[in-house]
Computed example of a mutant assay.
Amino acid sequence: MSELRFEGVTVRYGRALTAVDGVDLTVPSGQVVGLVGESGSGKSTLARAAVGLAELAGGRILLDGVPLRDRRPLQMVFQDPYSSLDPRMTIGDSIAEAAAKGPRGARRDEVARLLELVGLDADRASTYPGALSGGQRQRVAIARALAGRPEVLIADEITSALDVSIQGTVLNLVRTLQRELRLSMLFISHNLAVVRYVSDIVAVMYLGRIVEAGPARDVLGNPQHPYTKELLAAAPRRGSTSLPPPDEALRLVADAEPADPHHPPAGCRFHPRCPIGPLIRTDREHCLTLDPTTEADHRLHRAACHHAAGVLRAVGSNPPVLKELKEDLQ
């Protein structure tokens, strides 16, 4: 088991787009961190930076306190099982290619072991990807990732391209493997219900920044950032057949234009869509200019919101600061 840590990580595409902006995030040893956010929030870019597929413009990524350089004991399972496997290679060859070098017989045994580990018959090794279903291909992709004996596994939207009937099976497999192999895992999804199912810790990402993070039960049971609350409200619920009537404030911000990631808003990046922000409350114009991430460490779940409801009790070591924060939140 190993700890993966992002410190001030920034990733840019050209000069115009900062896809990840100063992200601090820790994947503790042996735990699952669920990273959630809508498309374009920077989740996949952060994952690609971890495995060396996206160049850092700033910050660093550490494994057990040591910066990642050429040696990257991380493996990634990608979103699309139909494009992540070479159609010209048997699935056994694809898995063997990622496994440690050794005698042919030993590698064949390792392929059989990995296939059985992900719930596939060992005799499938001679099968080509085109003969497999999407769920089976994703199992093969997981087996190939495990062949590299990773210390950290990154799963990027691994169920979003699958039928709903298959998603639960793959999620159960991932959760079982993580526990049995005691892997550290960064699990990425836009679906908060999926993240809630597999994660010990939840981090919420919006326009390249982490806006809330903490233990899954705490964040989902007592969300501090309005964006997290919005994601929770949109998550499907068992037995629900209809959407609840929209809140008046949500109705007012529903028509707001999505922020342009090439030109993110000043101040709080969520303010153009925020149901408790300046679009609704004229007394909150400071959200237009003041960046809430600068004081996030003093708020519950490190919430990047000037009006988060909670304040970390640990700040009590500096009573004047705590008093000012409480006054700001009133």
Rank of each mutant, 00 (worst) to 15 (best):
S29A: 15
S2N: 06
D80C: 10
A256G: 08
G277Y: 07
G37R: 00
A98T: 06
A213I: 13
T26H: 03
L322M: 15
V33C: 07
P265I: 10
M205Q: 01
V27T: 06
G208M: 13
H271L: 10
A303S: 14
I166C: 03
G42S: 12
A213E: 11
Q31G: 00
A143L: 04
Q138M: 11
A309D: 13
S189V: 13
G14K: 06
L62D: 12
E97N: 01
E257R: 13
V118F: 07
K101Q: 11
R237P: 04
T26S: 12
Y206E: 02
T26C: 11
R48N: 12
L232S: 08
V202M: 01
E212F: 04
L186P: 06
R313I: 12
V164D: 07
S94N: 07
D163F: 09
S84N: 09
R196V: 00
E55D: 14
S83W: 08
A131M: 08
E7L: 08
Y206R: 01
Y197S: 05
A308N: 13
M185G: 05
L322Q: 15
G168I: 06
P81I: 04
A249F: 04
S242M: 12
G40P: 05
R313L: 15
L117G: 03
R209Q: 13
R238A: 14
R107Q: 11
E230M: 15
G65V: 10
S94Q: 14
R281Y: 09
I61Y: 09
G316D: 15
R104G: 04
A96H: 02
D163C: 11
N222A: 13
R124C: 10
A100S: 09
A193T: 11
R137K: 14
A57F: 09
G65N: 10
V211P: 00
C268T: 00
K229Y: 01
P278D: 05
R179Y: 09
R12G: 01
S84C: 13
V140R: 00
A16E: 14
L56Y: 13
D70Y: 00
G105F: 08
H271P: 03
F78G: 07
P319V: 15
T289L: 02
T228G: 08
T176Q: 13
L300C: 05
L56H: 11
R5L: 10
V198D: 01
G30K: 03
T282D: 11
I280G: 04
D163T: 09
R217T: 11
S41L: 11
L114C: 07
D200Q: 01
A57V: 12
G42T: 09
H298T: 10
T159W: 06
E230S: 15
E38Y: 07
L17V: 12
D163R: 09
E55P: 06
L162F: 06
S84F: 08
R284Q: 04
R113W: 06
L4T: 01
A147P: 10
P261E: 15
D163E: 12
E116A: 12
L181N: 08
D328S: 14
P261I: 14
G65P: 06
Q330K: 11
